[in-house]
Amino acid sequence: MNNIRSEKVASWFFLSPILFIHFFVIAFPSILSLALCFTDWNGFGKIQFIGFQNFQELFSDRVFKKAVWHNLIWTIFFLTVPIAVALLGAFVLTGVKRFQLLYRFIFFFPYILASVVNCLIWKYLFHPKYGLNTFFDDLGITFFENSLLTQKETSLLAVGFVDAWHFWGFLVVIYITAMYQVDESLYEAAEIEGASKWQKFRYVTFPSIRPMFVFSILIIMIWSVPAFDYVYILTGGGPAYSSEVLANYLHFQAFRNMNVGYASAIGALMFVYVFIITGLFGLLRKLDWEI
C-alpha cells in the first residue's frame, strides 16, 4: 500500500515541473484570454467589462463571417489535396528500391524550410514580372499574367497551395512509416490472389494504416484553425479579405486594431471549435472506433 502511495507521489513529483510550466505558460494565459473576451481592453489601458458585446458584434461582422467560411474551405482543401497526394506519394515510394532516402528527403525538404522562405519563393514565382509568367507567357499561356495571390478569386487557394506544398512532405513521412509496418504476408497473400496494385492499396495498405490516416485527419482539422503564417506573409488576408482566415483576423484585431477584447472573443470561438473536434474524436475512440 505504502509502495503504491509513494509511486503515486513520485509520479506527481516528476510531473510537477512540466505541470508548473504548463499552468503558467499555457493554462493561466488561456484562462486570462477567455476572461478578456468579455472586455473592451485595447491592450494598454483600463479593462472594462462589456458582457457579450464582443460576441454580438462578431456575429454581425462581415469579415469574421468570411474568415469562418475561408477556414472551412481551408480545412476541406487540406483534407483532400495534400492527403491524396501524400497517400499516392507514400505508396509509390514504398515500391521504390533505389534512392528512396533521397526521394524522401526531397519530399520532406519544404517542410523543414522556414515558412518565410517558402513564401518568398512562391511570391516570386507568382510575380507577374519575374516569376512563372515569364516562362508561360512565351508559350501563349496567360494564366499567370497576374499573381494568383493578388486576385480575390484565387488568393485563398493560392495560399493554401503554397502551404500544402510545404506540408504534404510531412504527411508522406507519417504515411510511409505506417506503410512499412504493414505485415508483408498480407501483400504476399494478395499477390497470390492476383490483386492489382490498386486492390493491394485499397484492401491491404489503406485498412492497415487507418489509425495513422485518421490521426492525420484529426491534426489537419485542428491545425487548420490556427492557420496563420502563410496567410500573413503572402497576402495579409487580402485582397479584399479574400484570403482572410480566423487567426490572421485575430492577429489584426489584437495588434493592428488594438482591440484585444474582440480578438480574445475570436480566439475563444476557435478554442470551442478545437475542443469540439478533439472531444468528438475522443468520443469515437470510446465507442471503440479504431482511431
Binding site: 487580402g238 485582397p239 479584399a240 489584426f252 493592428r256 486594431n257 488594438m258 482591440n259
Partner: peptide, 19 residues
C-alpha cells in the same frame, strides 16, 4: 484613431473589389 485608421486601408480593398 486606431480602428478608423486600419479600416481606411484594409477595407478600401473591399471597395475596389466591389464587395
Amino acid at each position: 484613431p486606431s480602428q478608423a485608421g486600419t479600416h481606411i486601408w484594409k477595407d478600401m480593398e473591399s471597395v475596389w473589389a466591389n464587395d
